[in-house]
Design a protein around this nucleic acid. Structure first.
Lengths: 194, 194
DNA sequence: GCTACACTATGACGAGTGTTATAACCAAGA
DNA sequence: TCTTGGTTATAACACTCGTCATAGTGTAGC
């Protein structure tokens, strides 16, 4: 049972993630996602019977998994290398898009929720954040940091990175991210047992 | 020249800030802002001829100034007290609204921009972030921290707080904010010359 | 051949959006 | 008293939104 996914479906999810990280969830319409992916509007509801909520949820998970895979690879060289790659990833997204794109997970976390079922998107965002935190914390633990301290540091890294990305978009500079990088790197380097 | 502001105007700005921090900018309609403030829709365009963009810009500045005033007061007792008050403020907003409200400045920083003039809102958000950073950095400098280090620490505090607020909203826990608070407090305490 | 089914095409639905125009109100000043 | 100008009331504009229904297409298996 090879459950092969049609390319149109993947393009819809990837395109949705890209548009959400640029304009936010509410400003991203299904029509534009479909047009951007080259698929007809009707196909959207064929692949995603759950409508916009399902598409957004999968987009958040897709973006989260992409980052998680990169993190997993880079963390094998140690937590400081993982941190550097994590921050460099966001820096590249900012600069290569002229500060027009940020993090889709952050975007959906800040917009409307609680109304009814759009809470599924929020839940996916929560899982993505927790996943990144867990990856970083485990790497820190493997390098001699106590579990409680490792969890705190991991959360600090994710929070500071996400906040800095938003600040950079508003300020149209990578200054915030660069300052955060300097502080986090020295903080981790001074704690990790090499 | 007392330039007295009618109460309806203030209520519109404050209401807009409250709705933006809950649902984001795009999900906040002018009609709902007016209804929420008890003023007719027509008045909105009388007080804010620049339309939604002007109202949103003033809402961002209003929220920014409110926080800045509190920060200024608390920082007089030292940077660590300022940090504690800053984080406690966000924590209270999260818990008292059941994780439905966050930071309006962060919200507008993450949503659509660049299209044309909505860039004014982004500019206001950038100024608010820079203002908070400057306040914290100056307090740190006054307590014996080198200017470059103080700037980095101040940016780290703002970025980590903003990111943590978003994470808490998604995860429906104050865990992220509490972990960030523990780390930032010990980091500042270990650097500040008391 | 022909049936079955994944997919596309098209169009409509009700609702909500930002914005503008225009007429009515109603306080204070001459 | 009349007039002015800040404020409200009401309605309409052109548009986009998410969603659904329905008819049409293709191609793979029998």
């Amino acid at each position: 049972m090879t459950e092969l996914t049609p390319p149109s479906r993947q393009q819809l999810v990837a395109g949705a993630a890209d548009m959400i990280r640029r304009r936010g969830l509410n400003a991203t319409s299904i029509r534009e996602i479909a047009k951007h992916a080259g698929t007809p509007l009707g196909s959207t509801y064929h692949y995603f019977p759950g409508g916009k909520q399902q598409l957004a949820t999968e987009a958040v998970r897709f973006a989260g998994d992409t980052v998680a895979r990169m993190l997993d690879k880079k963390l094998r060289a140690g937590p400081v290398d993982g941190l550097r790659a994590f921050l460099a990833l966001w820096r590249d997204i900012l600069t290569s898009t002229g500060f027009q794109a940020g993090c889709p997970v952050l975007a959906v976390s800040v917009e409307e929720a609680a109304d009814d079922e759009r809470l599924a998107v929020l839940a996916a965002a929560a899982e993505v954040f927790s996943g990144w935190e867990t990856q970083l914390a485990e790497s820190l633990r493997q390098h001699g940091i106590e579990p409680a301290e490792a969890e705190q540091l991991a959360t600090l890294v994710v929070a500071a990175a996400e906040g800095a990305v938003a600040m950079c978009r508003a300020q149209r500079t990578t200054r915030a991210l660069d300052r955060v990088a300097a502080q986090l790197e020295s903080l981790l380097a001074s704690t990790v047992d090499r």
